[in-house]
Computed example of a mutant assay.
Amino acid sequence: MKKVTIDDIAEAAGVSIKTVSRVFNHEPNVREITRDKVLAAAKDMRYRPNVAARGLASNKSFVIIHFHDNPNSDYLERVHQGIHKCCRAAGYFAVMEPFQTPGPDCTLSYAEQAKDYLVEFPIDGVILSPPLCDNVDLISVLREHNIPYVRLSPAHNPASSSCTYVDDQAAAHMMTEHLIAQGHCKIAFISGPENHGSSVARRTGFLAALTDAGLNTEACPILHGDFSSRSGFKECETLLKSSSYVTAIFAANDDMAVGVMMAALKAGLDIPGELAIAGYDGSRVGNIVWPPLTTIRQPVHGLAERAAELLLAHIRTPGLEFTQEKLPVQLLVRGTSTP
C-alpha cells in the first residue's frame, strides 16, 4: 500500500503543499475553512505526519517535557493525561522526566539535573510542577537556554511566567470551615514537604480559618509529612499516642489522609464519630476507601491541559505575553467528616 504524503493531501484538499505544511505545524494565518479541508483530507486518507521529517524541516523536536519531583502517582498520572491530550492533538510528544530531590541520595541540584538533560535531549518546551515550578535556579537555566516554559501551580511570583493554578490557601480555608461547622474546635493539620509551595499555602489557609473562627491555634497541632500515605500513618499514630487531643485531622493531600485513616482504624477509632478526617486533591484513592474521603478536588487534568496549551502558544509565538489562569476547586463532603 502506497504511503500517503503531504503531496497527496494537498491534491485532495485542493491547496498547495506549503499550506498543508502550515496546517500540520499549527502556524497562524490559515483560514479556518482551508484548515478544515486539509485536516479532513488527512483523516480520510489516514495520514500520519513523520515527526522526524517535521523536526528536520522546522529545526524543532516536537517534544514537550514535564519536569517533576512528586511521589504522588495519581497526581502525576492526571498531569500527564492533561498534557498528553493537548500535545497529541497538536502533533507533539509529551514526556515525563522525574527529578531527584537534592540531598544525601542526590548530590545534583535541580538546576544541574536540568542542564544535564538539556545537553542530552532536544526539547521545544517545559512544564514545571511543584516544587520545581518555584526553583529560581532551575528557571534561570531554562531562560539561559531560551527554552519556553509554563508553570503548574506556582506558589511564588505567578506573574513572572505563564501558569495555571488553584487558590490552595482559600481551598484549605474552606475545608477547615467545613470541619469547624461540624463542631470541631481541636483540629490537627498534616503538612507536606516545606519545599512544596502548595503545602505551605494549605497550612496558611488552615491557620487563617482557625483564627477567623476565634479558635485557639495552639490546641490545633501542625504535623509534618511528605505527601506519602506512610507519613500520614506515622504522624497520626504519633499524635494518638501523645497527650494532644483532637477530634479531626486535615491532611494536605489525599495520600496522607488515607494513612491517617489506617492509623485511626488500627487504634480502633470510629470514623467520623471519634475522629473526622479530610484530605486534599480529589484523587481516586478517596473513592476507594471506606468511608469515602472528604476532600478538596482540584482540576489537575484541566490545569495540566491548559498549561500545555499555553506552552504551545509560547513556542509558536515567541515573545507572547504571559497568562495566568486560575481554575476553581470543589469541596467534596463525604463519609470521613459527616455521619
Score class of each variant (00 low, 15 high):
F227G: 01
A307E: 05
I315L: 08
P104G: 11
Y149W: 08
A213P: 05
L215M: 11
T247W: 07
P131A: 10
S21D: 04
A263I: 02
K60T: 07
A219F: 03
N216V: 06
V95L: 13
Y110L: 11
L269H: 01
I83N: 02
Y280M: 11
D255P: 00
V95Y: 08
N59S: 14
S229Q: 12
L215W: 09
G214S: 11
C133T: 12
R334N: 03
N59M: 09
V4R: 05
L311P: 00
Y47R: 05
I139A: 06
E235Y: 01
I277P: 00
R46H: 13
L331K: 07
D281S: 11
Y165Q: 13
L152S: 03
R230N: 12
A307P: 02
L39G: 03
T336M: 01
V15W: 07
E32I: 12
K326Y: 07
A172M: 09
V136A: 15
V15F: 08
P148G: 04
R46P: 00
R316N: 13
L118N: 06
S129I: 08
I147P: 00
H178Q: 08
I6A: 01
V329I: 09
V300E: 02
R46Q: 14
N216L: 09
R35Y: 09
I222Q: 11
I187H: 01
A42V: 07
H196K: 10
A52C: 02
E144G: 13
V23F: 09
T323S: 14
V23S: 05
V150D: 02
G183V: 03
A53P: 00
W290K: 10
R230G: 02
L108G: 05
I33E: 14
C86D: 02
G232K: 01
I315K: 06
Q324A: 13
T107C: 14
A90L: 04
R143H: 12
T101L: 13
P49Y: 06
S129E: 04
A304R: 02
D44L: 13
V260P: 00
A304T: 07
P102V: 14
N29V: 10
S191V: 01
A13R: 08
T295L: 03
F67Q: 04
S229K: 10
F93W: 07
F121N: 14
E194H: 15
D7F: 15
P193E: 12
A40M: 11
K234G: 00
R297D: 10
A308V: 06
W290P: 00
R284I: 11
V166K: 03
N59G: 04
P318G: 09
W290T: 15
F233K: 02
A181L: 11
G225N: 08
